[in-house]
Design a binder for these strands. Structure first.
Lengths: 217, 217
DNA sequence: AACACACTTGCTTGTTGACAACAAGTATTT
DNA sequence: AAATACTTGTTGTCAACAAGCAAGTGTGTT
């Protein structure tokens, strides 16, 4: 690979097939994201995505097979970013502390990358329809979130920091429902919610509900 | 009106224009609801709705103007049923008691009329897209829910049953987010949630968070 | 090493069928 | 006969597919 001597020639003109694909792929995913924000899923056409990305009207269909296939790609792409953001924030922490770190991370992600969250949830909500190809994507994403929370809770119980009488499944569902529900309200009406207040209140609620009454025993 | 002498002739054949419209209207709304459950919003065509209701392919468009107009009608129709169900359950109650009654009523409504809730939320979630005609419908519905909760809380504060240090807006948002989020998780995966457990846990959480620590003072 | 040829992969343009929306008609009630 | 409920004819848009063109890649020959 002697690309160093030539790499400055024209960055936007790839030399290999892999580079071509990577370039058009990221351009189309970005175009899809902005078009979803501008016009919604219904209002976004595959032709518009291809052309907005600087290609022909046919490329999006060719590359992703179908509208659903493209949107699946967009959602997994954003989901990946969120997962790495989350795991960096929580690390190896467990119990209520892990949950609070995750809550912080989520609200931070919402204000850092609001467009990612908007698009991701627009796509996920589209998965609430029967026979939607996004349904499985959304389901596994949320079930994974619930499973994470359940793990943090049971680890907390094992470590003695969490009251063993709590129902891990119910509390995990409650936790995910809070985040999903807040996100939905925010999507409908971005200005009406005071996230800082809500976040602190929710974390306090988590502690009082889950924490062992006598941790020092 | 001497309709009594003839009413048994053919119940399905209305005699007045108003009856004709009412008949086709309810038939089409019902058809729309079942088709949404079967095939989703995308998969439901206006022609299919008209024909499933026993009319021509064009009637749905003619009556409601557009697909969005029809779905708006479906959603307000279901919403009306829920509102009367709720107001009957809560009555003139206030404070945390009112909120708990509302929570009970909601989970009861979900198991009594799951198809209503499914369709209503499929439509509401479609309103998360920008420039969706369902957006305003969903927004006002949820803002009304939040406003109700806020009213119950401030009334409770005024009556001395609720701790005056709580943030009514934050708690009201939390309350609605819980219901909306749980409904979404249920829509994605109806079997995985133990509603009885979740409901009781949530009501307990409401009481501990909101109730005045020393109500007898 | 340099060239040529066959092959693969990326991308574009042509076409079809489905559907929402509208317009112009027919049937039913008043 | 006038108005209202409903039906049928038509158009433009879009997703999906098919067939072709263009750019890149591997292999054998010299």
């Amino acid at each position: 690979m002697q690309s160093d001597s030539k790499s400055s020639e024209r960055l936007s003109t790839p030399r290999t097939q892999a580079e071509r694909t990577a370039l058009s792929d990221s351009a189309m995913l970005a175009a899809a994201q902005t078009l979803i924000l501008e016009r919604g899923i219904e209002g976004t056409t595959l032709a518009a995505i291809g052309e907005r990305a600087g290609y022909s009207r046919g490329l999006a269909t060719y590359r992703y097979g179908s509208k659903a296939g493209l949107f699946r790609e967009v959602s997994t792409n954003i989901h990946r970013r969120w997962v790495s953001y989350l795991s960096e924030a929580v690390g190896e922490e467990t119990g209520v502390d892990a949950m609070c770190l995750a809550v912080d991370a989520y609200y931070r992600f919402v204000s850092d990358a609001p467009e990612d969250i908007r698009v991701l949830h627009i796509l996920y909500y589209a998965g609430s329809e029967p026979s939607s190809e996004l349904r499985d994507i959304a389901r596994t994403a949320f079930q994974r979130q619930i499973a994470d929370a359940e793990r943090w809770i049971t680890e907390g119980v094992n470590a003695g920091t969490i009251d063993s009488s709590v129902s891990a499944t119910a509390e995990a569902a409650e936790y995910v429902a809070h985040l999903a529900g807040m996100t939905y309200l925010w999507l409908l009406n971005p200005v009406s919610l005071r996230f800082d207040e809500i976040k602190d209140s929710f974390k306090r609620s988590l502690r009082t509900r889950l924490l062992n009454a006598a941790p020092a025993t």
